[in-house]
C-alpha cells in the first residue's frame, strides 16, 4: 500500500459496515473490496453481535473509525467519557485512523445527533484548533476531520469553509476527510463553485474521500446517502483525486434504502473506473416529491 505525503496508507476502495449487511458478510469469506469504515458510536457501547461481526471483518480487512458525536466545534466542554471509550475501541480494533466532522452536535449537555453548521469565524477557528490539539494529544494520533453538508451560512462568517479547513490543518496538522458529495451539496446550497472548494484545500493532508448520492428538495440539496453517486460528484471526485496524488482512500456511503451488498460493491467499483477515466453519465440528481420531508445524514446502524 502506498502512502500520501501526510503519511497515511492508501487503503483503496471501501464501504461503511452496516447492520443490514451482517448476514451476507458473515456468510462470505471475501467481500471484494479493500476496507471498511465503522461508525464509532455504533460500537463503543456495543458488545453484542455487531462487535462479533466487526472482529471477523477486522481480522481480514483494514478498518477506519468514523465518528459522529465528538462535538469538536461545540462550546460545551469535550466529553471525556466519550473520548475514553473512543480510545478504548481504537486500542481494541486498531483502526487505520479516526475521523469525525468539522461541526457541532450539541450544546448545554444535549446531543442533537445531527451535524450542525459552524459559524466560520476566527473565534470558532481558535476554539476548534485548541480542541483538535487536545484530542490529538489524547488519542496520540492525528485526527481526521470531514467537511459536513450544510444548508445555511451564518452572517458572522469571515472564512470560507475551505479557508477554515486549510487554516485548521495549518495550525493543528490534522488530516482531512474530503466528502466530495458534501462539497457538491454545500456549494449548490450556498451558490459557489465546488471546484473552488476542492482546489483550495491542502491536498497533501487529504487522507480519505467520501462519495454518496444526495436528494434535491426544492432549492436545496440534501445529503441523504440513499442514491447512486451523480455524475457531477464523479467529476469532482476525479478532480480531487488528481490534485491529491490519485490514490486517496475512497469510501462509498449509503445509509438509507441500502442496497444488497453486491449491488453496493458494483456502485463502489465505479470509483476505480472514474479514476481510469470512465465517468458514469446517467446518474442525475434524485428529486424528492413536493410534500416529502427528506432527512439529512440519516442515522446509521
Amino acid at each position: 500500500m502506498s502512502k500520501n505525503t501526510f503519511g497515511f496508507k492508501s487503503l483503496g476502495f471501501g464501504v461503511g459496515l452496516r447492520t443490514e449487511h451482517f448476514p451476507y458478510l458473515m456468510s462470505q469469506n471475501d467481500w471484494e473490496l479493500d476496507w471498511f469504515e465503522v461508525i464509532s458510536e455504533n460500537f463503543i457501547d456495543n458488545h453484542g453481535f455487531a462487535r462479533h461481526v466487526l472482529n471477523k471483518i477486522r481480522a481480514k480487512k483494514p478498518i477506519v473509525m468514523h465518528g459522529v458525536s465528538m462535538n469538536i466545534g461545540s462550546s460545551d466542554p469535550l466529553n471525556h467519557v466519550y473520548l475514553d471509550k473512543l480510545k478504548a475501541l481504537a486500542h481494541e480494533i486498531e483502526p487505520e485512523w479516526i475521523s469525525d466532522h468539522l461541526c457541532w452536535t450539541g450544546v448545554m449537555g444535549v446531543n442533537s445527533h445531527d451535524l450542525l453548521p459552524m459559524p466560520l469565524t476566527e473565534e470558532s477557528l481558535q476554539h476548534v484548533v485548541s480542541r483538535v490539539h487536545y484530542v490529538q494529544d489524547f488519542l496520540q494520533r492525528p485526527l481526521i476531520l470531514e467537511n459536513p453538508s450544510t444548508y445555511l451560512e451564518f452572517q458572522q462568517n469571515t472564512f470560507s469553509e475551505w479557508g477554515f479547513l486549510s487554516e485548521l490543518v495549518k495550525q493543528t496538522d490534522c488530516g482531512l476527510l474530503l466528502d466530495v458529495n458534501n462539497v457538491y451539496v454545500s456549494s449548490f446550497n450556498h451558490g459557489y463553485a465546488p471546484e473552488t472548494f476542492i482546489k483550495n484545500l491542502p491536498h497533501d493532508h487529504i487522507v480519505q474521500m467520501h462519495l454518496a448520492g444526495p436528494t434535491l428538495m426544492g432549492d436545496c440539496l440534501i445529503d441523504t446517502h440513499d442514491q447512486p453517486v451523480p455524475e457531477k460528484v464523479w467529476h469532482l471526485y476525479r478532480l480531487a483525486q488528481s490534485l491529491s496524488g490519485g490514490n486517496v482512500s475512497t469510501l462509498l456511503e449509503w445509509d438509507a434504502n441500502i442496497p444488497d451488498f453486491p449491488e453496493l460493491v458494483i456502485e463502489l467499483n465505479k470509483a476505480s473506473a472514474v479514476l481510469a477515466g470512465a465517468i458514469p453519465s446517467a446518474e442525475s440528481i434524485f428529486t424528492a416529491a413536493e410534500d416529502a420531508m427528506v432527512l439529512s445524514t440519516p442515522i446509521t446502524r
Binding site: S112, H113, D114, L116, Y151, L152, E153, N189, G218, D219, C220, I222, M293, L295, S296, P298, I299
Partner: peptide, 21 residues
C-alpha cells in the same frame, strides 16, 4: 428568507431522525 426556510431542515430533521431511531 432562505436562511429561515433552511432552518427547518435542521429543526424538523432533529425530531424526525430521533423518532426513526
Amino acid at each position: 428568507s432562505t436562511f429561515y426556510r433552511r432552518l427547518n431542515i435542521y429543526a424538523a430533521g432533529y425530531v424526525i431522525r430521533l423518532v426513526e431511531c
